[in-house]
Nucleic acid binder design. Sequence first.
DNA 1: GATTAATCTAGACAGCGCAAAGATGTGCTG
DNA 2: CAGCACATCTTTGCGCTGTCTAGATTAATC
Lengths: 214, 214
Amino acid sequence: MNQIADRTYHHGDLKVALLAAARSIVEEQGADVFTLREAARRAGVSHGAPAHHFGDKTGLLTQLAAQVMNERVDLVEAAKVAAGVEPMDQLKACGLAHINFLISHPHLEGLCWRANLINRSDPALLDALRRMTAGLIETMSAVTGKALDPDKEANPSTLLAIAVVHGFAQMVNERIILSDVPEHERPLRALAMANEMLDLVGTAFGGEGSTVAC
Amino acid sequence: MNQIADRTYHHGDLKVALLAAARSIVEEQGADVFTLREAARRAGVSHGAPAHHFGDKTGLLTQLAAQVMNERVDLVEAAKVAAGVEPMDQLKACGLAHINFLISHPHLEGLCWRANLINRSDPALLDALRRMTAGLIETMSAVTGKALDPDKEANPSTLLAIAVVHGFAQMVNERIILSDVPEHERPLRALAMANEMLDLVGTAFGGEGSTVAC
DNA sequence: GATTAATCTAGACAGCGCAAAGATGTGCTG
DNA sequence: CAGCACATCTTTGCGCTGTCTAGATTAATC
């Protein structure tokens, strides 16, 4: 029975309960501080219980990471659709959507790149990653006018796009910039700065395309 | 006496010995795996010894991080000098020097941004960070022709520069790109890709300055 | 040379991840 | 409906960690 099951010996939905607990821990305090035992405590089970569903700590965190990554891709894809049909608009919308997610969930994002805490070879994780790059490369193909290989992100334009988005998010999350801005208005300020910066990047992409002067 | 002191009760140079041990551990296996006890073991002292010199684990790693950061700034400054007087050349040289360091010491660099392992408010660390941004902003001022406030990195051009450098390095270190390239030739390939990418970024900076067509 | 300070050792403690063994339900088979 | 196999959860034990404390040893100072 999967409904309530709060006092039974068998939890009933422990897997999702543990993932939820893990998510809240990581989101609040960061992936470093996460412990299996605390997750079990929050789910109301003994510290040995998680092993049966996830094997070990890495197993649980890997599954959480895959979940987070897919969430991010979903949001970006939605933003892309909402941006209309102009490739350059789509690209910028994707960039802002990425940044928005990254700065909204800094700790969750941090988890996804910690090779010592998750299994980077996990199929679900690799799938999520593929979804992400494929989406970006599709957008980028439209912007540059060249048909880029959806499995090969190694072209300067795509590289630049990924790098600038992740690099900027890192700067915000690590408080390299906007460190003195009050917490509640930091996201808005960050997105405004990202907007400016992405416009600047746009001149590198669209330089020979849309913005041909003279 | 600070010479040999290998069998005496007082080590003589334990502080630097511990830093060296810590550095080798982090460099080899990453900051996650680092333990105070292993550092003490490698330095040949008891597990309680480090406390007297660094207080706790965070204290040791913070000092190591500051050391690493200053090292990086030194290398970048040297590359800038070697690049000549042309601002755009200097900027590109700095970017490549940053990337070269970041991909050469991925684990050491990772340490510098782990808020849970180091004390980001440490004066020595803040100083190193100031050195870094100040140098970049000076270079960037020459490129854009505007006099930028050396304490304010929050202008689109500077942001883009830092973001793209760190973002690219992260992609290499996390094996998002060049994952199938053999270890020994990865640095060279990465720098070549960085070169291309930085040229692309250059068009965003130099677009209205040096490269005025027509 | 005696005293003070710096340095290092050794032991204890709680918390962790993991593994093994036992307890307790659930669901299938007859 | 009875019995049994299985999934699930608990409990215990192990070695590891960081930190604290008290004590041993050496260096520095007066």
